[in-house]
Write a protein that binds this DNA or RNA. Structure first.
Length: 625
RNA sequence: GGGGACGUAGCUCAGUUGGUCAGAGCGCUGCCCUGUCACGGCAGAGGUCGCGGGUUCGAGCCCCGUCGUCCCCGCCA
């Protein structure tokens, strides 16, 4: 039998009661976390989002409440009415925040029963994520998830407040819109009113926020949902949230200052101080030093070990002497058996035209001097695991071999990237041995305990870094054309403008990425605000006026009506939360995420729709058999 | 599209060379228990070993295929 709530009002939350509340008459409501039945005495741990409180049901004192207590099971929803009392000294539980008190219940109302849950929200996350996601409502009851979403709320709130303080207005832009010029696939929504036509969900509010600058709003921001129909990863979902902002009359440095401020505010809300300003690195240096444009500075970088080898060495080893020869070092891994090394081989991306040497004993046997020099150059201790990565001359890949002065060739980038990926994959695998991530974990844990009121130093746990000086264009091998590496409204450096047509390889883009601990947190740019520059860019891309007008017509119109110099950035909010929650993937900080195969296991989406719906939308489905 | 890991009870897992191997802990159900807080005690229920096919006298174990989850590459500038 279930009881009615009646006009009963909750007076307190479970986790908030302390010794000072002793004697108070209270009404608590929540879920039964655990029940301990001692026969004539029953203990209930009652849980709500604030925490847990022990309810005592004594058969002698309250026979009715005790009878109800016998019926109760895990996750039943109950109301406990009674008095807060101090526990006897020997019954105090220091592991509980409310461990000094308990509720001597006079009445227990069962507001709802519950089926046996497939796993207990009172415990740590189960490994089977399929079950967690299917029963997401149960999973979200777990303290860790409750904490993650409270954290998300606090960080978001702090960032909003900070941006507002910095003079930014939050303005919403459409969800049903037109395809935006980010490179991803669009999610399309068929129009019922306009047969055969489609809206696109925004990949970002890019064009709208630039138009807001033309409209004179000067500083705009939005906590914006974005949609990209691409394959998912640990740090990529189909829909995600960006802290999107744009400002008028900015220099790059002013954008950086704004971001550093609001990010520090967000971190502070999570109990972590983040020193500003953030360091910078050029794209080329980032590739050379880390083999990545989102470097993780917690680990040693790559070392150029080309000088360790003679030309004969390289010839014997079948290494391309024109490409980089780098070493990666994972500290304190110890000596690996042949089997262990072979198990690591799938972590190396074979398709990048690079090869690696991870058998150092063998290398030392054939090339003792080179091997010694490599270890010397990398500064490796005996316990450090060192791998040499180099270009494979035998491996023909689809990449431009052409070397343009002053910038890395595609093949060079590929070798660096192969080394960089290997570095991060191995670092993930041997995290326990090198311990480079431990400080981050400890800081996150400590921050959860200390809270925003008493923030702790994050400088050894979080390594933000600006990546700058990206090349403006990429050489497309198939067409033999230079194509923009970024969206076509990204401004070139004013100093490089003269070379747009004559030497596109040398032109740098005035855009920037922000990375932290191996994650790309965001990217932005100074935009093109002048029609003549925009035309030059289009011309250099071989885009005709007509074509440009068709793709970006309304925006090009807007540009002609008094566009201020402007620029901005967008940061991935989910990724920021993920870092501060100490989560391994975005699903831990998104309430209802999708699986790697883009499925919502709880809602069971996507699904087919009725013929009627399709007809109204003028859509016919043609499945490939 | 490609590579890798995993899939045995509700959950976490063990299962040797193919031969009583259908197992453990937790959870669950029933009974007992007035100071537990991962309560305890006794008893019990619970399995298409992801699915399909093959090899074999015999398959949880070997082979092929397939599905699902996760990680990575491609893709996402």
């Amino acid at each position: 039998m279930l009881d009615f709530l009646g006009n009963l009002e909750r007076t307190h939350r479970c986790g908030t009661l302390r010794a000072a509340d002793a004697g108070k008459q209270v009404v608590l409501m929540g879920w039964v976390n655990r029940r301990r039945d001692h026969g004539n005495l029953i203990f209930l741990d009652l849980r709500d989002r604030s925490g847990i409180c022990q309810i005592v049901l004594d058969k002698e004192l309250t026979p009715g409440g005790h009878a109800r207590g016998e019926q109760v099971r895990s996750e039943y929803v109950v109301a406990a009415i009674g008095k807060v009392r101090l526990r006897a000294p020997e019954a105090i539980n220091l592991k509980m925040e409310t461990g000094e008190i308990e509720i001597e219940a006079t009445e227990l109302r069962i507001l709802n029963d519950a089926r046996l849950t497939p796993f207990s929200p009172a415990e740590e996350a189960i490994k089977d994520e399929e079950v967690r996601l299917k029963y997401r409502y149960v999973d979200l009851r777990r303290a860790e998830m409750q904490r993650n979403f409270r954290l998300r709320h606090e960080i978001t709130l702090a960032i909003r407040a900070n941006l507002s303080q910095q003079g930014f207005l939050e303005i919403e832009t459409p969800i049903l819109t037109k395809s935006t010029p980010e490179g991803a696939r669009d999610f399309l929504v068929p129009s019922r009113v306009h047969a055969g036509e489609f809206y696109a969900l925004p990949q970002s509010p890019q064009i709208f926020k630039q138009i807001l600058m033309i409209s004179g709003f000067d500083r705009y921001f939005q906590i914006a949902r974005c949609f990209r129909d691409e394959d998912l990863r640990a740090d990529r979902q189909l829909e995600f949230t960006q802290i999107d902002l744009e400002m008028s009359f900015p220099r790059r440095e002013s954008v950086f200052a704004v971001v550093e401020q609001f990010l520090a505010a967000g971190f502070a809300a999570a109990g972590v101080t983040l020193p500003t300003p953030f360091p910078r690195i050029t794209y080329d240096d980032s590739m050379r030093q880390f083999g990545s444009d989102k470097p993780d500075l917690r680990l040693p970088g790559l070392t150029d070990v080309r000088p360790a080898f003679t030309d004969e060495n390289l010839a014997t080893l079948q290494i391309d002497p024109a490409l980089p020869v780098v070493a990666l070092r994972i500290p304190n891994v110890g000596e690996l058996s042949r089997k262990e090394r072979e198990d690591n081989h799938p972590l190396f991306d074979q398709k990048k035209g690079a090869k690696f040497i991870d058998d150092f004993k063998r290398l030392a046997k054939s090339f003792p001097e080179a091997a010694a020099k490599v270890r010397e150059l990398t500064g490796a201790s005996d316990a450090d695991f060192v791998i040499v990565v180099a270009g494979d001359p035998a491996h023909h890949i689809k990449a431009s071999d052409t070397k343009f002065p002053g910038r890395l060739s595609e093949r060079e980038i590929n070798v660096y990237a192969a080394a960089g990926n290997f570095r991060t994959e191995l670092a993930k695998k041997y995290a326990d041995r090198h311990g480079a991530f431990r400080m981050t974990e400890e800081t996150v844990e400590a921050a959860h305990v200390h809270g925003a009121a008493d923030p702790i130093d994050g400088s050894k746990a979080f390594y933000p870094i600006w990546i700058v000086d990206f090349p403006m264009f990429e050489y497309e091998l198939a067409s033999g054309k230079w194509v923009p590496a970024h969206h076509p409204f990204t401004a070139p450096y004013e100093a490089d403008m003269a070379n747009l047509v004559s030497d596109p390889a040398s032109v740098r883009a005035d855009c920037y990425d922000l990375a932290m601990n191996g994650l790309e947190l965001g990217s932005g740019s100074i935009r093109i605000h002048r029609k003549d520059v925009q035309q030059q860019i289009f011309a250099s891309l071989g885009i005709s006026d007509e074509e440009a007008r068709k793709r970006f017509g309304f925006f090009l119109d807007a540009l002609e009506y008094g566009t201020p110099p402007h620029g901005g950035i967008a940061l991935g909010l989910d990724r920021i939360i993920m870092l501060l929650a100490g989560a391994a993937n975005l699903r831990e900080v998104i309430a209802f995420p999708k699986t790697a195969k883009a499925i919502d296991l709880m809602a069971d989406a996507p699904t087919t729709v009725t013929e009627q719906q399709l007809r109204e939308l003028h859509v016919r489905v043609a499945l490939k058999s």
